[in-house]
Amino acid sequence: MEYSRWPSGVSWKRVILDALPENIQRVIDGIPQNIAESLEEIRIREGRPIVIHGRGKSYYLGTDGGLLSSPEKAYYVTHRDVQSILQRISNYSIYAVEEELRSGYITLRGGYRVGLAGKAVVEGGKIKTLKYINSFNIRISREIIGVADRIMRYLVSGTEVYHTLVLSPPQMGKTTLIRDIARQLSDGFPGFRGIKVGIVDERSEIAGCFQGIPQNNVGLQTDVLDACPKAEGIMMLIRSMSPAVIITDEIGKPEDVEAIEEALNAGIKIITTAHSSDIGDAQRRPILSKILDKKIFQRIIVLGNSLGVGTIEKIYDGHTLNNLLDRPIR
């Protein structure tokens, strides 16, 4: 298993620093190496100190990047800093990121996502855009090549791929897992020839596209529909790209179920995820229980953290609901 393009774990700095004004660059650049390697989030809020999160801990940052446990001597973000960040992450072109503002995040080169908060402008009951943006959440995602190595044999049988559902609580690595599944199915692995894969990446998290180009390794035979609503995206891929497998993240709406059924009828395999801690929990939720009752999925993977974040707790056979694993793997 390897961290594909971040061997030292701190190469995120190049991209992230480019999105920040000089005085905040100095602060972030000063974060000690050991903390920078495991950094997960940088929170920047106007008039408040910068807070970083990593390995379950959070710290305030001083003007030199030093870690502080109390906010008194921390660097406080100014209005000018916020304006500068907004201009830089939008490449001085708010008009070109209207859709992203509506979704509440902008994806940077490298697939890093910056979540935004401000005042929503609503028109006809729908969010038109965000204004007075004053909070940024820079998420440092790490692509882990090979994270699905140990489970691929459970997901295929000869040349056939099973319909698979990944259940996991938030922040347990389900997107990282399906990204690597996409890559392995697309490129092939020992005993399996690569096939055509289509990804509907509604939140730009799986492939981390920047201007339409995947920044993460999602495979040689993979087509990505970036920032596309799942249900419509699945239908578009069926019509236009003839994939053997469609991979998408976080299903949960009634139209998602319809689109999945449409894909099944077209003979396309589906691999997707849902927020849930186990099958029992999923069955209590109306949409998920509907899917489970139909026994669409042949494999159900449950993620947890019994052996650390990203542990494969169980792999169920979707029809018999027997656990195929003797013990959790990581």
């Binding site: 490449n91 001085y92 072109s93 008009y95 070109a96 209207e98």
Partner: peptide
């Protein structure tokens, strides 16, 4: 460039 193609400003 800005209205029809939403080209980023530096490039436009």
């Amino acid at each position: 460039e800005v209205i029809n193609y939403a080209t980023f400003l530096p490039e436009a």
